[in-house]
Amino acid sequence: MLAGPTLIQLRAFVAAADAGSFGRAAFLLDMSPSSLSESVQALERQCGQALFRRSSVGLTLTALGERALGHARLSLQHSEDFGLVLTEGRALAGSLKVATYRSLGIHLLPPILALLRQQHPDLQVHLLDGTSGASKERLVQDGQADLAFQELPAQTPLRRLPLLQDDHVVVVAPGQARATLGWRDLSAQPVLVSPSQHACNQRLYEHLHRHLPKETRVQEIEEDEVMVSMVRHGLGVAIMPRLAVLNIDLKVRSLPTPLTRQLGLLLNASRADLPHLQAFIRAVRQYQQTKSFAALQHTLRHGLG
Results as ranks from 00 to 15, higher is better:
83 G>H: 05
126 H>E: 15
53 R>N: 13
107 H>L: 02
99 A>T: 02
132 S>Y: 13
84 L>D: 14
105 G>L: 01
80 E>M: 01
83 G>M: 02
117 R>W: 08
95 S>F: 04
101 Y>N: 12
56 S>V: 04
105 G>V: 01
90 R>C: 08
131 T>A: 14
102 R>W: 05
59 L>C: 06
78 H>S: 11
71 H>T: 10
90 R>Y: 11
93 A>Q: 15
124 Q>W: 05
85 V>H: 10
61 L>N: 07
78 H>D: 12
126 H>R: 14
107 H>G: 03
110 P>Q: 11
128 L>C: 07
136 K>T: 10
102 R>H: 11
106 I>E: 13
119 Q>Y: 06
93 A>L: 04
53 R>W: 10
121 P>H: 10
126 H>S: 12
94 G>Q: 05
58 G>F: 06
126 H>W: 07
79 S>N: 12
120 H>T: 00
136 K>F: 03
70 G>Q: 05
53 R>D: 09
130 G>P: 14
79 S>W: 10
86 L>Y: 02
115 L>G: 04
114 A>P: 08
98 V>E: 09
98 V>K: 01
57 V>S: 15
55 S>C: 12
129 D>T: 13
81 D>W: 08
66 E>I: 01
69 L>M: 05
77 Q>E: 09
60 T>D: 12
109 L>S: 07
113 L>V: 10
60 T>I: 10
130 G>K: 09
104 L>Y: 01
72 A>Y: 02
121 P>G: 00
84 L>Y: 07
134 A>P: 09
110 P>S: 04
113 L>F: 04
123 L>D: 12
74 L>R: 13
118 Q>V: 02
88 E>M: 07
98 V>R: 06
68 A>I: 00
125 V>S: 05
78 H>Y: 11
122 D>P: 03
62 T>L: 03
62 T>V: 06
98 V>Y: 00
107 H>Q: 14
127 L>P: 12
50 A>K: 15
50 A>G: 14
69 L>S: 06
79 S>R: 11
99 A>C: 03
111 P>H: 02
77 Q>A: 08
100 T>S: 15
102 R>F: 04
134 A>M: 12
81 D>F: 00
126 H>M: 13
74 L>F: 02
51 L>E: 10
119 Q>C: 08
